[in-house]
């Protein structure tokens, strides 16, 4: 038997459970209750409430991604400099939190950030007034960064670890100081890692609804929350599908825009 046929079960699976569901949601998005064709569901993303939620989600996702990049690079650089020689160890530390239930971990942040929580207790000890950040977009941002940071650190760390020490030494040899080594060698060479990090952070941050649900205290509506409610509360599946497809298209466009920018910048940021 030819080896390529070994993929047959996988291909059947992909068609049955990836492609067909996507077609189904697409059809659902473009029909109404009577089964007639309509653009309405897709265009409802432009309704004021939905549009506001979409833009707010975009802002949160962008902020979260940028913060993750800023936190991940120093961490990845330091991990590299430790020369643990054990990539497995870094991965372990980043993956391990996933084994504590995700919703419980977000609930823990709610407790930490609450007016009488651990954070305010510590700040009170330092003599400062209590911070009112629970149930706000700040709490949502902290929760999002917390949940998605490992998905930025891991690919960035992998990319940075893959850079040959010789390449860095060559740059030093040619007169580059620490700063020049970072901007002209490490950053451009780790760009692919950063891009996969961006995808792994931006998409879930943009579309999650659980974090906003718990840490936003019901006051914050991301586009994910609206879609979820269309299915669980309003029972308006066609509208929900329409919003989902619009969201998917929007995310794809944002990603394509980031990629294109990155590729275009490649020539200019290096020098």
């Amino acid at each position: 038997m030819k080896r390529k046929y070994w993929a047959a079960p996988y291909l059947v699976w992909v068609v049955g459970f990836v492609v067909l569901p996507l077609i189904t949601i697409g059809v659902s998005a473009m029909t109404d209750d009577q089964g007639h064709f309509t653009w309405e569901n897709l265009l409802s993303i432009g309704d004021p409430i939905n549009r506001q939620a979409l833009l707010f989600s975009l802002a949160i996702a962008l902020g979260c991604t940028v913060i993750c990049i800023l936190l991940a690079y120093p961490a990845a650089m330091i991990l590299r400099s430790l020369r643990l020689n054990k990539r497995g160890f870094a991965i372990l530390i980043m993956i391990l939190p996933m084994w504590m239930n995700f919703i419980l971990r977000i609930l823990a942040w709610q407790m930490i950030l609450s007016p009488n929580g651990v954070l305010n207790f510590l700040i009170g000890k330092l003599g400062a007034g209590p911070l009112q950040i629970s149930n706000s977009w700040i709490a949502l941002m902290i929760g999002s960064v917390y949940d998605f940071l490992p998905f930025m650190i891991l690919p960035v760390f992998n990319a940075i670890s893959d850079i040959d020490e010789d390449t860095i030494e060559a740059a030093r040899d040619l007169g580059a100081n620490d700063r020049a080594v970072f901007w002209k060698v490490i950053l451009p060479l780790s760009a692919p890692g950063m891009i996969s990090g961006i995808i792994m952070v931006f998409v879930p941050a943009m579309t999650s609804f659980v974090i906003a649900d718990i840490l936003g205290g019901g006051k914050i509506q991301l586009i994910g929350n609206i879609i979820e409610q269309e299915f669980t509360k309003s029972m308006n599946w066609h509208a929900g599908s329409g919003l989902s497809i619009s969201l998917m298209i929007f995310v794809l466009i944002s990603l394509a825009f980031t990629m294109k920018n990155d590729l275009k910048d490649k020539g200019t940021t290096i020098w």
């Binding site: 993929a7 992909v14 579309t207 999650s208």
Partner: peptide
Amino acid sequence: IVMAVTNIPVLNADIVTGIAMMLWFVR
């Protein structure tokens, strides 16, 4: 082509994947 399709569940938002499967399964 196959690798591009493979990446769909990774790249796509969980909420869209979940809803799409639900809509398909209930049929």
